[in-house]
Design a binder for these strands. Structure first.
Lengths: 221, 221
DNA sequence: CGTCACATTGAATCCGGTCAAGCTGCGTGG
DNA sequence: CCACGCAGCTTGACCGGATTCAATGTGACG
C-alpha cells in the first residue's frame, strides 16, 4: 500500500515483542471520534478497516477536512512522539476497527528503535508533502479544479468499484465542500454541471466518475 | 530556541563523532537557492545565520511561501529521510551560512540512532502542525486577518527590534502577499489602512508593529 | 406516507483579484 | 551633485468567482 512501508517494517524483534504484548483492539461506530482536538492521546491507532476523517474544527464552526485515512494508516504519531495535545480531530467516517498501543509504550520505543522512528519520520514526511501541496492548491487553484483534484485523489485511495468498472466515491456534497475549502452550494453546482457533461454521475452521498480523463483535464493535474 | 531541541540533542557519542567528521560549511548569497524543487538533495543543511524562504513554485508562475526558517532550523530532512526529490524550494532571503552533512550519512544515521530519528520526527511533526493550521486559515479567514497573523508569527520568529522597542519585519509587500496567499495590492491596501490607524508603520521592504495588541485583535488570534 | 437529511437552483452580494496610472525612495553614473 | 532609472509601493476603477440566503425538490427510512 505504501512504498515506504508501514510503521513496523524492519523493526527489532525486541520491539516487535513489546508491541505485540501491548497491542489492543478497539472499534468505533461511524461518526464517533477516535481522537479529538486538545486531547493528550493515550493511544496510537492503526486502522484495520474503515475510513477516518482528519479535520480541524475552527472556532467559528467551520470544518476543514485535511484528509481521509484508510486501512494501514496510523493515527496520532505526531502528538504521541511530541507528547503534545492533538491539533486535529479524527472521526470515524464509517465503522472503524483499529489496533492500538499505549502512547507511553510507543513514545519509549521511538527513542529506542531507530527503524521505528525512521518509519514514523517517513510517514509524517509524506503527510507534510501532501499538506504542502494542498496549501498551495488552496490559493492558486479555483474551486472547480480543487473539487476535481479532491475527487481524483480520493478515488485513488478509497474508491469503490462499481459493476461497470467506474470509481465510486462515498462523499456527500458537504463532505466534498469541507475537503476542498468550499461550500455545499458550490460543490453541488459543479457536480450538476459535470453530470450534464457526463463526466460524473452524482447521487445522494455518492459520486461516480464516468470519465476520469475529462475530469483530470478539468482538474489540470 | 526550540523546546523540543535541535536535531542532534542527546544523540549517541558515536553518531556525534561521525557527524563531526562529515560536517562541512557552506555559504549562500541572498537570492540563491539552497535546495530546489525536483532535486535529490545531496546535503542536509542547518542554518547558522541568515534567513531562508521555503516556497513552492507553482506551474503558472505563482509563488506560495510556506514559511521562513532562521538559525538552528534544519533544511531537507524529509527528502533526505525518504530519499525522494525536493517538493519545495529553499531560497536564501539574506546571506545564509550553513553547516551541512552528506545526505547518505544522515540517511544511514537515521536508521541507526533512535534519538536522531526521534528528534527529526519531532521537527517534522512541528512543521506538520504549522501547515495544518495554515491550510485551515487559508480557507476560513479573510485576507486582512491572514496578513495580521502572518506578521505576528513572523515577528515572533524573526523580528528585528528597533531603538524604541518595536518589532520590525523585513518583508516587502510582495513577500507578505506570497506568504498569505494574497496579492501585492491587497497587502499594500491593508498596510496602508493599518498605517492610517497607527497599528503599524510601513516603509519600503519593512513593517514596524507599533501596536501588537490591536494587530492581534484584528487578526483574531 | 410523513419526515428529515441531503441536494438543487436562482438571485443578490461582496471580497479580493486584475489592470492601469502614477508616486517614491534609492542607488548609479554622467 | 543632480538626473536618471528602476524596483517597490499606492490608489482607483472594474470585474468576477464564490459565498450567502431563500425557496424548493428528492431520495431514504421508519
Amino acid at each position: 500500500m505504501d512504498i515506504f512501508g508501514s510503521l513496523f517494517d524492519g523493526i527489532a524483534p525486541g520491539t516487535q515483542a513489546q508491541l505485540a504484548a501491548a497491542e489492543r483492539r478497539r472499534t468505533f461506530p461511524a461518526g464517533t471520534d477516535l481522537l479529538t482536538v486538545g486531547q493528550q492521546p493515550e493511544c496510537l491507532y492503526r486502522i484495520a478497516s474503515g475510513r477516518v476523517k482528519i479535520w480541524r474544527p475552527s472556532n467559528d464552526g467551520e470544518a476543514m477536512t485535511l484528509d481521509y485515512f484508510g486501512p494501514g494508516n496510523v493515527l496520532g504519531i505526531v502528538p504521541v512522539a511530541r507528547r503534545e495535545p492533538m491539533r486535529v480531530t479524527m472521526t470515524a467516517a464509517s465503522r472503524v476497527e483499529t489496533h492500538c498501543w499505549p502512547a507511553t509504550t510507543i513514545h519509549r520505543l521511538l527513542g529506542e528503535d531507530a527503524l521505528l522512528s525512521h518509519n514514523a519520520l517517513n510517514m509524517v514526511g509524506k503527510a507534510l508533502n501532501i499538506l504542502s501541496e494542498r496549501i498551495e492548491e488552496a490559493n492558486s487553484v479555483n474551486a472547480e479544479q480543487r473539487i476535481g483534484r479532491a475527487l481524483l485523489r480520493f478515488a485513488g485511495e478509497h474508491a469503490i468499484w462499481t459493476a461497470d468498472h467506474h470509481a465510486a466515491i462515498d462523499l456527500s456534497r458537504q463532505d466534498i465542500a469541507d475537503l476542498t475549502g468550499s461550500t455545499l452550494f458550490t460543490a453541488s453546482r459543479v457536480l450538476s454541471e459535470w453530470s450534464r457533461q457526463g463526466v460524473v454521475k452524482s447521487m445522494r452521498g455518492r459520486v461516480v466518475i464516468r470519465d476520469p480523463e475529462s475530469l483530470a483535464a478539468i482538474a489540470d493535474v
